[in-house]
Every structure is written in C-alpha cells, then in structure tokens.
C-alpha cells in the first residue's frame, strides 16, 4: 500500500549559516498511512513540532525527502508547497492562533480566501465545518468572547474547512483540563472514523494512551528513537 505521507532521512536545520544553527530534525524516516492516527511523542525540544512542519508542508527540509500522496514536495517552490498544504492538510496549533478581532465565522473562513470559490460555496463549507465542531450558534461571536475549549473548536473548524485529508495537531491538550481533553479526543476519534488521517504531536499520556491512536513515534533530539503500536 502506498503511504499517504513518507519522509526519507529528512533533516531540518534552522539558521544554517549562523552561529545559532540548530538541527531540529536529524534524519528521520517514517510514514503515515491513509486513515491512520499517529502520535509523535517526546519531551519538548525533541523536534516534534519541526517534524510536523515538514510533514505538513509548512517548510522544506534542509536535506532528505518528503513525499505526500506520492508526490515529492521537498523541492517544490514555496508557492506550490502552499498549495499542497492548503489542499491536503488542516492544522490545529498549540496556541490556536485565531485572529482575535474577527468573528468565529471569519476566522474559520481564512483558509478559503486564496481558493477560487463562490461566496455560496465558501458559506456552505464554513457552515459545515462549524456544524462539525458544534459551534453553529456562536458563528457571529468574536473569538475573544469564547472559552479556551471553544476557541480550540474554532481552530479545529478552521482546520477542517478546506476538507483536508490529514489533520495535524500540535499539543492539542496543552491548554485543556482532563475532562475537556477527553471530549477533544472523542472528537478526534469521530474524525478518524470519518476517514481523516491524524498526526498529533504530544507528550500528554492521556493522548497517546487513547484507543484511537494506531502508532506512536518517539523522538529524542531530533532523532527517531522508538516506533511501535499503541
């Protein structure tokens, strides 16, 4: 079976020419199959977030290859990388990164602006994404008026609005109590059921021990140190 995402000896060095050059990812080979839920586990600074960036086409590797849906993206110009990212991935950031002055609806709509969609189609997709996270009633509210959990649901709706194949989440439970974490994981499980592939970076045991997780990849200092089933 062809994996959805594959990395081959992928490395990422930030500020390569400067004194503070840091190798965040040092030669990782891994793959994610379609419909799978994979957890990247490791202490902070182990390169989880950087690997997520590479896998999710946020950035290009310094060396090595990243292959998404059978196409090598590691050498694509930024413009096309953005296109692949927008069409294939949805991101839920650790800090949510919503624009505080905008309403829930407008925040969710952000990824749709660069696409050539009609206003109707945009409205339809936003409504669908909001329904998915049960926020339809709050669509006109400003995101600053919402609670932390609700804000995260807005972030998830924004990640889903482009109808992606892969949902990437970075420390999704970092700002949630255990009750809300459970709710979130249930939501992820439902999304997985619906066919979405999940890649989650976390060091929260509640996440990587959850039954929805198929595989755990453990990272340490930018290297892969253990890989196995949940």
């Amino acid at each position: 079976m062809n994996p959805l995402i594959r990395t081959e000896e992928v490395c990422k060095t930030y500020h390569p020419r400067k004194a503070d050059a840091t190798q965040a990812v040092a030669g990782i080979t891994m793959q994610v199959a379609s419909g799978e839920a994979v957890v990247l586990k490791g202490p902070s600074g182990s390169g989880k977030t950087s690997l997520l960036s590479l896998v999710g086409c946020m950035t290009r590797p310094t060396s090595g290859r990243v292959i998404v849906t059978g196409e090598e993206v590691s050498r694509l110009p930024e413009r096309f990388l953005t296109l692949v990212r927008r069409r294939t991935f949805g991101f839920v950031f650790q800090q949510y990164h919503l624009i505080p002055e905008l309403s829930v609806r407008d925040n969710v709509m952000l990824p749709l602006y660069p696409e050539r969609l009609s206003a109707n189609e945009m409205g339809r997709r936003v409504a669908a994404a909001l329904a998915e996270v049960e926020l339809t009633g709050l669509a006109r509210r400003r995101v600053t008026e919402l609670s932390g959990g609700e804000q995260q649901r807005v972030a998830i709706a924004r990640a889903l609005v482009n109808e992606p194949r892969v949902l990437i989440a970075d420390e999704p439970t970092a700002h949630l109590d255990s009750r809300l974490s459970t709710v979130l994981l249930e939501r992820f499980a439902a999304l997985k059921q619906a066919g979405l592939t999940l890649v989650i970076a976390t060091h929260d045991p509640q996440v990587y021990t959850h039954p929805l997780v198929d595989r755990i990849i453990e990272l340490h200092d930018g290297r892969l140190c253990k890989e196995g089933g949940a």
Binding site: E78, L83, F91, F93, H97, L98, L110, P111, Y113, P114
Partner: peptide, 11 residues
C-alpha cells in the same frame, strides 16, 4: 497566521 493557514506570498 494567514501564511500558516494556506495563504501564499502572492495572496
């Protein structure tokens, strides 16, 4: 944020 959610430099 705009760049992260899929806006291109051109956008």
């Amino acid at each position: 944020i705009l760049k992260a959610v899929g806006w291109d430099t051109g956008d």
